[in-house]
């Protein structure tokens, strides 16, 4: 039986503090996007897709990914959508202005992944704004915005749940787990994210 999490490798193998978390290593298989096939997705609860992933390859595998979602599985997407590879996706919309207030992150709805995470720790790292994101991937109708960016609070993070129980979690920026070793409340995201992903139903 496959492990519950399938981690798609980006242009380089996963490394860094998130990849070292025992909870991830104990529950995930790491595969190159080019190797993704139906047997690898069998019984998988959640697929994790980093921002640094070949989206042309994801588009070539779109039927597999769409089926995973439509059969009740969970997908976590990071990055800017350049090649919409699911029915629920459209192209990334970059911010026009990138002053501090344009980059500020605001919580729009509570969610266990962000429990105890201060908005300021998403907006700023070492006082610098803009690491969390630079725009947003527009959500499909019925999605729930979780965090907004800028003065208009454009939905940078959102969750879409379909009628089959499939869950599509979008983070329109650098990998959601990039804060795993931050000395701030943002480091809570990575372990809380893993628990939320593992609590999903298999596709």
């Amino acid at each position: 039986m496959n492990p519950p999490l399938l981690f798609i490798q980006g242009v380089a193998p996963a490394n860094g503090p998130f990849a070292q978390l025992p909870r991830l290593k104990d529950n995930a298989r790491f595969v190159r996007v080019y190797d993704l096939d139906a047997p690898l997705l069998q019984d998988v609860r959640a697929v994790l897709i980093p921002a640094h992933t070949d989206q042309r390859a994801l588009r070539a595998k779109r039927e597999l990914l769409q089926a995973h979602l439509d059969q009740g599985g969970t997908l976590l997407l990071n990055g800017h959508i350049a090649y919409p590879f699911l029915n629920e996706l459209t192209h990334f919309v970059p911010l026009i202005e990138r002053r501090m207030d344009d980059l500020r992150i605001r919580r729009l709805a509570p969610h266990p992944i962000f429990d105890g995470v201060d908005e300021a720790d998403l907006s700023f790292r070492r006082g610098v704004a803009g690491f969390y994101g630079r725009g947003h991937n527009p959500p499909p109708p019925g999605a729930r915005p979780l965090n907004g960016i800028g003065t208009q609070a454009a939905p940078i993070d959102w969750l879409y749940e379909n009628a089959q129980g499939g869950r599509l979690l979008m983070h329109s920026g650098n990998d959601l787990w990039m804060h795993a070793a931050d000395p701030t409340s943002a480091r809570r995201i990575a372990p809380q994210l893993l628990e939320w992903l593992l609590a999903g139903e298999p596709a």
Binding site: G10, V11, A51, H52, T53, D54, Q55, R56, A57, G79, H80, I81, A82, Y83, F92
Partner: peptide, 11 residues
Amino acid sequence: IDGGTYYHQAT
């Protein structure tokens, strides 16, 4: 050479 990522596309 295009690696297929969003930033390759945007660049």
